[in-house]
Nucleic acid binder design. Structure first.
Lengths: 172, 172
DNA sequence: CAACAATGGTTGATATTTCAATTATTCCCC
DNA sequence: GGGGAATAATTGAAATATCAACCATTGTTG
């Protein structure tokens, strides 16, 4: 984010051989940064109000959709774009609440399968309603469907670029 | 995020009186979640590599554009969508590095003006190049200009909804 | 002008995240 | 089959973020 635009220091202009952002790009990027931050803040707060953080919810939600309510730690980390370490810690906390269990992976001695318990399923079902409502209200309702589709397309390109080809709802 | 789609538990379907997400919405929302997370991760990592976190960079960058390189703590918090407490802590760390100074606000006895030092300005100028390059590479280059504009528009609507009317580059 | 609410900012305890090892297992390949 | 590289997950310490309580000042109201 260049400080050059609103207070151009003579020295800095000379070295403009790197792709600065144009005014329009700058504006769009700022809107993105602030909007996405605010969105995450409110969705997290709404979930916290019912006792789950957004990060926790994402894990639980992935699990709830997985076959047998079970998924490997590393896949969970990949799909939620969280570090392995973070998933480990979060899983430990969820386990303390009795929402998940750890089981050794049958096929790979190094692996752990995280399994959603009945209590966990109940919790995530409840949270899912809160979350879906929030997404509708704060994101989808704020624009017409075409624009929302564009948003999805745009972010899908970013996702693909950074994370590779798997589609948004890939499971195996 | 409803678990209903890929593993519909009979019980949950009955209580469908809340706005679940449609398949398309779900896909777009997932793309957004993962894409935005991945984007933040990489932009943060690129900045960390030159010694600044994204959160720190945002503060420094705002300061660098402000008149007299100076801004009130609370405005900084508002504009970066961070809590006041967080801004306080971050400012303290930046101060330890000699990048910002605190001065009492002339007009309001409660207020503090954060001022960017010369070292801070140098640091943010350097970081800005890294950041702008990352935004170009990972976001802008990944889509055609029209789509990027749509992205900006979409997030601007979200921002307005959640944060109010101020435009993305409002200063006073 | 006295009370009292609201604002601006800080503080410190607590919770979470990151980071750099560490362990165990599997994969590869000679 | 043995040795080393890669992968899966965990650990604990350090960095950072959140939360609630707090102090000082300002604004408001009667």
């Amino acid at each position: 984010m260049s400080e050059i635009q609103s207070a151009p220091p003579a020295a800095a202009i000379a070295e403009a051989d790197v792709p600065w952002l144009s005014d329009d790009e700058q504006r769009a990027w700022r809107a993105y940064l602030r909007g996405s931050r605010a969105l995450e803040v409110i969705l997290d707060a709404e979930l916290q109000a019912v006792g789950v953080s957004l990060a926790e919810y994402e894990l639980l939600s992935m699990l709830s959709e997985a076959p047998c309510l079970t998924m490997r730690m590393s896949k969970l980390a990949d799909q939620t774009v969280q570090s392995r370490s973070r998933v480990t810690h979060t899983a430990t906390r969820l386990q303390r609440r009795g929402w998940v269990e750890r089981h050794p992976a049958p096929d790979d001695g190094r692996g752990i399968q995280l399994h959603l318990t009945d209590d966990g399923l109940a919790a995530v079902r409840f949270a899912a309603r809160v979350h879906a409502t929030g997404v509708q209200e704060h994101l989808i309702r704020q624009m017409d469907p075409a624009l929302f589709r564009s948003l999805g397309d745009a972010m899908d390109k970013v996702r693909t670029h950074l994370l590779g080809e798997q589609p948004a709802n890939y499971n195996p």
